[in-house]
């Protein structure tokens, strides 16, 4: 097991290197750079050139990349092209809101999704199934930005129950924080809940018609035991994969949700940094997201081994 984890971690290295190369290449193939973004349409070509020199953007691609890798390995992620702030300092401010949003949304979606999915599968072809399926379909068919706007319209502007934007540190003002996080995590969680529900239902249906379930039932086991001990455990395997894969979706969704709710998280930071070509920030955020994602992936694979003994981790 330990050997497996170590090997997996080693495998991660090329993945991460690949990620950084890809984002480095994409960012630098974009038209315009941080100088144009900052100085705007009234800057002279000289001013732009001077700024590019200051930011080291006049260097060849591989020199820039190797310099960045060298610094990153020493824990120095560089400084923002705008405002000269250390990127690590910016990340420390911007990652907590996204992590909180992601966790809340994931919890919400897993709780709702698995319950709905299992219920729908157990009562296959009944009205409950139809209702759950319709709800799940509604969920996956709604653009999340649309849902977010509707929630704001109803709960913030009409009813004035919840704030429409902003973020307060959880540990400084827990109540404000929770109130501010409700709408964003609902928006983000709803779509995911629908995806999880659909996958759970599918997986449960697969499992429920297997011979061993029939055997279990024939043995006279109580249906609840059949469902929880025999069916759900097996059905969870593909669901775990999907939830793991959903993490990518969470971060994608966070981009949109953070924009709608003006939530100062890393998704919004990433999008605006792409638009303003703030290379050091884009690279660092992508790197961190890739690390998180890889870690979760490893966890999913380990869970896989726990849930399905036939998958040997070797």
């Amino acid at each position: 097991m330990t050997a497996y984890i170590i090997r997996r971690l080693l495998i991660t290295v090329p993945t991460i290197v690949l990620v950084t190369v890809v984002i480095f290449a994409i960012m630098r193939s974009m038209p315009g750079g941080p100088a144009q973004a900052m100085l705007g349409d009234q800057a002279t070509p000289e001013a732009i050139k001077a700024m590019e020199q200051r930011l080291g953007l006049d260097q060849p691609f591989h020199v820039q990349y190797l310099a960045w890798v060298g610094n990153a390995l020493r824990g120095d992620l560089g400084r923002s092209a705008f405002g000269n702030q250390p990127v690590s300092e910016i990340l420390l401010q911007r990652i907590p809101p996204t992590v909180e949003l992601a966790i809340l949304a994931m919890l919400f979606s897993v709780a709702i999704g698995i319950t709905a999915g299992v219920t729908a599968a157990v009562y296959h072809n009944s009205r409950i199934d139809a209702a759950a399926s319709v709800l799940a379909i509604l969920g996956v068919s709604t653009p999340s930005f649309w849902l977010g706007i509707m929630l704001v319209l109803v709960f913030s502007i009409w009813l004035r129950w919840l704030p429409s934007m902003g973020y307060t540190n959880l540990f400084i003002a827990p109540e404000t924080n929770v109130r501010q996080m409700i709408l964003p995590s609902l928006t983000l969680g709803a779509v995911m809940a629908a995806v999880v529900a659909r996958q759970t239902r599918g997986a449960m249906l697969d499992v429920l018609y297997q011979d061993y379930i029939r055997t279990a039932r024939a043995k006279g086991l109580v249906e609840r035991v059949v469902l929880t001990r025999h069916a759900l455990g097996n059905a969870l395997i593909p669901v775990v994969t999907i939830v793991g894969l959903q993490l990518g979706q969470v971060l994608s969704g966070a981009v949109v949700v953070e924009t709608i709710f003006a939530l100062p998280g890393s998704g919004q930071l990433l999008v605006s940094s792409i638009f303003t070509r703030d290379f050091p920030i884009v690279q660092a955020v992508v790197l961190v997201m890739a690390l998180i994602f890889t870690a979760v992936n490893l966890a999913v694979d380990l869970l896989y081994g726990v849930l399905d003994p036939r998958v040997r981790l070797s």
Binding site: Q249, S252, V255
Partner: peptide, 18 residues
Amino acid sequence: DAMLAFPGIILALAITAA
């Protein structure tokens, strides 16, 4: 893995912007 490690929208956004 490398591609999955990007949030989908971000990858799509960056590619389209480029």
